[in-house]
């Protein structure tokens, strides 16, 4: 639970953005769209784990 998580997500985001541009320049728009979606799904799974972790701690903490 420290800043490395933010760096990993940012790295995936930047990588996807760069890949997107490269693929668009190469004329393959649909593959560019696919890589953007793939990167988004990966990051979404990471963040959803942290969100469920957060909600569990809040529920235990405030006895919801």
């Amino acid at each position: 639970m420290d800043i490395t998580i933010v760096f990993q997500i940012a790295a995936v985001g930047i990588l996807v953005a760069v890949l997107n541009q490269v693929l668009i320049r190469a004329g393959r728009e649909e593959q560019a769209m696919m890589t953007t979606l793939a990167g988004l799904v990966v990051v979404l799974f990471w963040v959803i784990q942290y969100i469920s972790n957060l909600f569990d701690t809040v529920q235990n903490l405030f006895s919801l």
């Binding site: 998580i5 933010v6 997500i9 940012a10 995936v12 985001g13 996807v16 990167g39 988004l40 990051v43 979404l44 990471w46 963040v47 942290y50 969100i51």
Partner: peptide, 8 residues
């Protein structure tokens, strides 16, 4: 992804 960063 930028919103996911702010959530994280």
């Amino acid at each position: 992804i930028s919103i996911l960063i702010s959530i994280a």
